[in-house]
Design a protein around this nucleic acid. Structure first.
Length: 895
RNA sequence: GGGCGGUUAGCUCAGUGGUAGAGCAUCUCGUUUACACCGAGAGGGUCGGGGGUUCGAAACCCUCACCGCCCACCA
């Protein structure tokens, strides 16, 4: 067999995915067991405009690890892929394309524009699904969904109609966040607060009575043109007499009242606030409380309206600001201007400053939905957040303060609102135009031109993708899903809304658990972003180090933020190479052997290293299963890494090498080779969910791979490690005794190696080992393993006795269980150096002993600490004392 | 303004009440036929500062400092 010395990830990555997909391994139907437990995940649908970034790769890796793991455990698994139509982003992309042709979307009209978007989606959209194949994501492509698919559109309309009928969706004229650049309304969540250095202007409004003025402070002087009152706190002594007075609003002919409202903070500014109900959310509320008129002075283009007065009409809001300030100054009404830092609202997408204005939009009332979600959390702990702290609280706090959601958008790309208007303006909400006509009793209808917020369709994702509102088999089987894997920035936008919709329409939260991943920052601890150009492209990392190595790194990220470090990927690349070469060794020495699970049924007659590796294998399988059940990915990766590298490669292969490479083809050789191959096969299975490509590549090369290795649920399927049974981790195969005995052997070998290294003994030099052990059992262990010990400690001779008798010119070490080893070094030993080496060890022991003795001397400790702890300390002190005595003797013997 | 997270070896991070860990980096040795993307051995931390609880704290509580994130209707 010809196997290259270095693992080439690219080859393995090209070899298997297509076959897995073609054979239908990703689809739940591959599982033939009608009673198989269910495991399902829906992917957080990436934007159709998006391309793969580290955040995706991170989530996808974790989802795939779980999916592959559960599949190997015999679950009927579904990981459902798909994409989001991403209203604004996509519309912007296509608009930009049109612009290159010198066209605007208005030029071609709505219908043509939407066609263009679909065309764009066909040609350039969904890059990400190709990239997901590279990741090895075991998603069921046959069930792929897009939020604009006709069936999902149907779900959207159904939900809209039902919520409207329940009075939970309504149309209203309210203050909203308007983006003057994107020309659409936005929800509160699509607006970001940005701290800004600005000015606070103090403006004087004269009293109509002529008895002076009131000074108000504002960051937006231009809005004064729309003022309809000035408010003060009712308890503010300074203004008590002014409440009810009338002010002359400068630059206008309006007279406005002074009102009293609790909202006003007397400490801030002058304690008097100008009230602009049409252009400020707080003022809007105040206006409602006091029935103030709303004067719209800024339009959707962020330009001043006619209502702002002749002088200002048509001016941009910032030009108007300058002009207002100038006028006030001319009139002697500008008291002062001070520097002031405050938070300003910007459009999350285009960073344009939001203009709050009054507009007719569609809203969703959230209170009932919210209450139900909170109830579900409090009573049923559903969903379960991982990690629970802090996300459960973040989620519930947000819900508690939730306000109505603006769901309409002035875009063309998206789900058009299923509402129609008759000639007289009556609103008809229906599932289709036909239904609307019936309801309205007329054919003269105009559909509302607006579309729904992208998140309106995303929030239905866990059930709309499974066929809702039809009562499909998939819906019954896979809803609710097992877990949602997500980044924390969409807990509000998406997670909470899915819960509310799931409870409302399915009577069950859409997922049992919510795992919130950490964020991958750049090397300097900054968020990766397109604008900063500091993003790391996962595909480049795949090319450089391989998909499996990258996945291993990502899987170990967990829930905390980490800085990207390529070094770690490199070390996992090395790990992949290690796996490759370990397998290479096994395969190069596999003649006349095949995998045979029977050989792992070791008994007390079996060689120590075999009993040991079987015990380790089962222990590790249990640990990995436990870690994955608790979403402790890092723990699972570390456990597997050390099992494979340390236990399997560094010790097991080395211990068994003598038998494996024996010249003669004895049954012992066949048995050793069989066992080695079988352990390797099990190790590959353990690793497969994390490293799908290399494990499949190697598994397919193993002699004796057959259908028996597959999980019973996949009997008869084509062979793949994907469908192999995940190692059980049987507790009865964990052999504490074997692990302790092996530890004694490892300790002995390590001590001798240490002596060799410190005494500068050449690697080629064979030494003699004199071992003394008063414990008969331990002597038997060393005796039974002399071949391994000589091989790994490079000894020519091993002599084991009850009492150590060694020449003076020996280097010595004290071992586990009161044993000792001596390496005679006649002519080689430097007594001074040896004394120093032993003294160093003694010092270490003394320091530890002193600490423990002090602890034991403390009556508080012996009285209050658990008895077993105290006993542990006593035992350890005794052990140290024994070692110390031996060391003293040894040093004395040196003369 | 409120809430939360981080601070552990030179670097990147695990560890959440009982003797401080990993990977990388460092030092020494190595042509042992799976692997130098390797092997063997070694060095390196009073776990951000201070206080408290406890027989015992990196871990629990308080407090301070620095870094970061989220939420928020003081114009």
């Amino acid at each position: 067999m010809d196997i290259p010395k270095t693992y080439d990830p690219k080859q393995a990555e090209q070899n298997h995915y297509e076959r897995w997909e073609r054979e239908g391994f990703f689809a739940p139907e591959i599982n033939r067991d009608p009673r198989a437990p269910i495991f399902s995940i829906v992917i957080p649908p990436p934007n159709v405009t998006g391309s793969l970034h580290m955040g995706h790769a991170l989530q996808h890796t974790m989802m795939d690890v779980l999916t592959r793991y559960k599949r190997m455990c015999g679950y009927r698994t579904l990981w459902l892929p798909g994409m989001d139509h991403a209203g604004i982003s996509t519309q912007m992309v296509v608009t930009r394309e049109l612009k290159k042709e010198g066209l605007s979307r208005q030029d071609i009209g709505r219908e043509k524009f939407v066609e263009r978007v679909w065309q764009w989606k066909q040609e350039s959209g969904g890059q990400i699904s190709k990239q997901m194949r590279r990741e090895g994501a075991s998603v069921d492509w046959s069930r792929e969904k897009f939020t604009m698919d006709p069936d999902l559109n149907r779900a959207v309309r159904e939900v809209f109609v039902r919520l409207y009928d329940d009075g939970m969706i309504y149309r209203g004229n309210r203050i909203v966040n308007w983006c003057p650049n994107d020309q659409t309304v936005l929800s509160d969540l699509e607006v970001e607060k940005v701290s800004q250095n600005g000015k606070l202007y103090y403006l004087r409004y004269p009293l109509k009575s002529g008895k002076g003025h009131v000074t108000v402070a504002t960051t937006r002087p231009e809005t004064m043109l729309g003022d309809t009152a000035v408010a003060v706190n009712p308890n503010d002594e300074r203004y008590r007499t002014l409440v009810g007075e009338t002010l002359l609003l400068p630059l206008t002919t309006r007279e406005i009242p002074v009102i009293a409202d609790e909202f006003v903070e007397p400490e801030f500014g002058t304690g008097a606030v100008k009230v602009t109900p049409a252009h400020d959310a707080n003022d809007y509320e105040m206006g409602l409380r006091h029935s103030l008129p709303q004067v719209l002075v800024i339009d959707s283009q962020a330009k001043m309206t006619e209502a702002a007065g002749e002088e200002f009409a048509g001016l941009d809001r910032y030009k108007a600001r300058t002009k207002v300030v100038e006028k006030f100054e001319e009139l002697g009404l500008l008291e002062k201007v001070v520097d002031y830092e405050f938070a300003i609202s910007k459009c999350e997408r285009c960073k344009t400053v939001i203009e709050p204005l009054i507009s007719t939009q569609w809203f969703m009332a959230m209170d009932k939905l919210r209450d139900r979600a909170l109830e579900s959390l409090q009573q049923d702990k559903s969903p379960q957040f991982v990690p629970e702290v802090p996300y459960e609280k973040v989620y519930s706090n947000w819900l508690e303060n939730l306000r109505d959601w603006t769901i309409s958008r002035q875009l063309w790309w998206g789900h058009q609102i299923p509402a129609w208007y008759t000639a007289d303006g009556t609103v008809v909400v229906a599932r289709s135009e036909e239904e609307a006509r019936q309801k309205a009793g007329t054919n003269e209808l105009t559909q509302d031109p607006d579309v729904l917020d992208t998140w309106f369709s995303s929030q239905l994702w866990p059930f709309s993708t499974l066929g809702w509102p039809e009562d499909t088999k998939d819906l019954a089987t896979f809803y609710p899903t097992s877990v949602l894997m997500t980044a924390r920035d969409i807990i509000f936008l998406w997670v909470s809304r899915m819960v509310m919709m799931g409870l409302k329409f399915m009577d069950q939260a859409p997922f049992a658990d919510v795992f919130v991943t950490g964020t991958i920052l750049d090397a300097h601890g900054q968020r990766m972003s397109k604008t900063k150009m500091n993003g790391v492209d996962p595909l480049e990392v795949f090319d450089k180090y391989g998909v499996d190595a990258t996945r291993l790194k990502l899987a170990s990220v967990g829930s905390t933020d980490i800085r990207w470090s390529e070094k770690q990927v490199e070390s996992y690349r090395n790990f992949a190479n290690k796996i490759w070469n370990a397998a290479r060794f096994c395969l190069l020495n596999s003649e006349s052997a095949t995998i045979n699970p029977q050989t792992l049924n070791v008994d007390s007659e079996s060689p120590l290293h075999d009993r040991w590796i079987v015990s380790r294998l089962n222990r590790v399988a249990r640990e990995v299963r436990k870690a994955l059940t608790g979403y402790e990915f890092h723990e699972a990766v570390q456990t597997l890494y050390h099992f494979f590298w340390d236990d399997f490669c560094d010790w097991y292969i080395e211990l068994t090498k003598g038998d494996i490479t024996a010249e003669e083809a004895t049954t012992g050789r066949v048995q050793a080779r069989t066992r080695l191959l079988t352990v390797l096969e099990q190790a590959l299975c353990l690793l497969h969910p994390f490293m799908p490509y290399i494990t499949e590549e190697l598994w397919q090369k193993l002699p004796g791979v057959n259908g028996e290795l597959l999980h019973p649920a996949y009997k008869g399927a084509a062979l793949s490690i994907m469908l192999a049974a995940y190692p059980e981790g049987q507790s009865e195969l964990i052999d504490e005794n074997a692990e302790w005995e092996m530890q004694a052997v490892i300790d002995l070998i390590t001590r001798v190696r240490n002596i060799r290294s410190e005494m500068n003994i050449k690697p080629g030099e064979r030494v003699t080992l004199l071992i003394g052990s008063p414990d008969e059992k331990l002597r038997a262990v060393f005796m039974a393993n002399t071949a391994q010990i000589s091989r790994l400690a490079r000894a020519a001779e091993v002599s084991i006795n009850e009492k150590l008798e060694a020449p003076r010119a020996s280097a010595r070490a004290v071992l586990i269980g009161g044993a000792e080893v001596a390496v005679p070094l006649a002519g080689l030993i430097d007594f001074g150096q040896e004394r120093q080496r032993l003294s160093k060890e003694k010092e270490k022991l003394s320091a530890e002993s002193a600490k423990l003795a002090a602890q034991l001397a403390n009556p508080q400790f012996t009285e209050r600490a658990p008895a077993e702890k105290v006993e542990e300390v006593r035992a350890r002190i005794a052990e140290i004392a024994q070692r110390n005595a031996q060391l003293n003797q040894t040093i004395a013997n040196l003369g």
